[in-house]
């Protein structure tokens, strides 16, 4: 990992010096122990801040979209011939590149506006899992070395295996190496266990309809409508989210249980062919709502019905934007 970090810093520095990128989005050390936080680097000397390890959680494609949109909005009143182009450099693992591919497929920006520094990924630590494994108390100090994490809490010290606290998304990740990149740092990471990716969904499908409904309501009852999942999701980039529209108002803004269910249901359903299973929504959820169980079903349907895996290839079209004569028809009602 150290080696990748050094190369990453050199690469970032070179890009900024050669003016190939105006800003680099990467990760820096977080203010809390055993965390990493997204950072934006505009000066070459700041490149030393960049890190790359198993604590880098968030999908940075979200910030690529945010920055490009903000820049385009700022250029709106500028004469077309005077408009400046801005190139965003981004440190991207497999899921980040998949999100970028989705943005490109949805014509959000041009390929030339983003410079992808690909990094191999062997999974990230789910902070809620780590906390539970460490005994549930606040982590005061932590150290990561050779697949082991040493954690110190108010209750004492503990050593946790990295494998135990990896995010569920990472354990069954199919694309842990970047799909597209302008420059690749480090050698490709070994494959995870993609065969098991739908195990949880299959298990859930086998339950009775009342059990499924009970689980859905139980999970959604935890939701406090903080919208963190939406803010973290790279595919949630609408300028005005349906949840905030008032003409018409699709969903109430209160704490009504049905409103929460409807909000979550609609957000989840908007992910057909667009969820890359980066786990950012799950990672940022303060209440620990099991969103992945539902997102994975959408992913499974998309794969089984249309043979499409979100953002897995630059040549693909969004699955809901096209059709094929082989699409299944058994759901169509014929009296």
């Amino acid at each position: 990992m150290e080696n990748i970090e050094t190369k990453l810093r050199e690469e970032a520095q070179r890009l900024l010096l050669e003016k190939k990128a105006d800003v680099i989005i990467g990760y820096e050390k977080g203010t809390l122990p055993l965390t990493a936080t997204p950072c934006f680097i505009t000066r070459p000397e700041e490149a030393e801040k960049l890190i790359w390890n198993n604590l880098c959680t968030q999908n940075l494609a979200k910030f690529v979209h945010d920055l490009i949109t903000a820049h385009k909005n700022s250029q709106k009143r500028v004469k077309p011939e005077d408009r400046k182009k801005k190139v965003i450099g981004v440190v991207a693992r497999g899921c980040t590149t998949r999100s970028i591919i989705i943005h490109l497929q949805e014509r959000q920006y041009d390929r030339g506006e983003v410079y992808i520094i690909g990094v191999p990924c062997d999974g990230y630590v789910e902070s809620k899992k780590l906390r539970t494994a460490a005994g549930g108390a606040d982590i005061i100090e932590g150290d990561m070395e050779g697949g082991q994490i040493k954690v110190k809490t108010a209750e004492g010290e503990k050593t946790v295996a990295l494998k135990e606290v990896l995010s569920d998304s990472c354990r069954t990740c199919r694309y842990n190496n970047p799909i597209i990149s302008d420059v690749m740092v480090g050698s490709p990471a070994p494959a995870m266990n993609p065969e098991a990716e739908y195990d949880q969904v299959k298990e859930f499908e086998a339950k009775s309809i009342e059990e499924r409904w009970a689980y859905f309501t139980k999970e959604m009852a935890k939701c406090i409508r903080c919208n963190a999942c939406r803010q973290a999701c790279p595919s949630c980039y609408c300028p005005t989210c349906f949840a905030e529209q008032s003409m018409p108002q699709w969903v109430g803004i209160g704490e009504d249980a049905t409103d929460t269910q409807v909000f979550q249901f609609m957000r989840l359903y908007h992910m057909v062919g667009r969820c890359v299973d980066c786990g950012s929504c799950v990672a940022v959820c303060p209440m620990g709502v099991d969103l992945r169980n539902f997102l994975k079903k959408i992913d499974k349907d998309c794969w089984e019905m249309f043979g499409n895996r979100a953002g897995s290839s630059m040549e693909d079209m969004p699955p809901l934007g096209k059709f094929s004569e082989n699409d299944k028809e058994d759901f169509i009602y014929n009296p």
């Binding site: 309809i209 059990e211 009970a214 057909v272 079903k297 019905m305 809901l320 934007g321 059709f323 759901f331």
Partner: peptide, 19 residues
């Protein structure tokens, strides 16, 4: 024709969450 795919996934997803 695009609606077809949307309804196929919508129906399946509603069933999955228990509706």
């Amino acid at each position: 024709m695009v609606a077809r795919r949307k309804f196929a996934t919508l129906k399946s997803f509603l069933n999955y969450i228990g509706v």
